[in-house]
Amino acid sequence: MSKVFIIVQANEEARPIVEALLQDNPHAVAQESPAMVRVEAEGKMTLNRATVEDLTGQPFNIQQLHVNLISISGHIDEDDDYLTVAWAN
């Protein structure tokens, strides 16, 4: 199976995004490089709005991801409550 990934900047705004990804996708792993964090997973990975909001205690709009996103791989399915990246193979 192919790997999907989401890379975000290593900053305070993106930290709960990384934590939410790791929490909701037990098969995901985070790799840190200078100034960035890459979260990758086999096949499929989902970012849930509710998880980020639980972590920060603040409202979160899925599209806020754009501000700190560096790169993303896989087909994207986005709605108000989640963003999923997945490969069909």
Partner: peptide, 24 residues
Amino acid sequence: MSGAAYNGDMSTVTFGFSAQSDES
């Protein structure tokens, strides 16, 4: 761009990742 950060170039890493957020 990660290399730019590693080499202390705050300016380049910032424009680089800012551009890359559009790039994704």
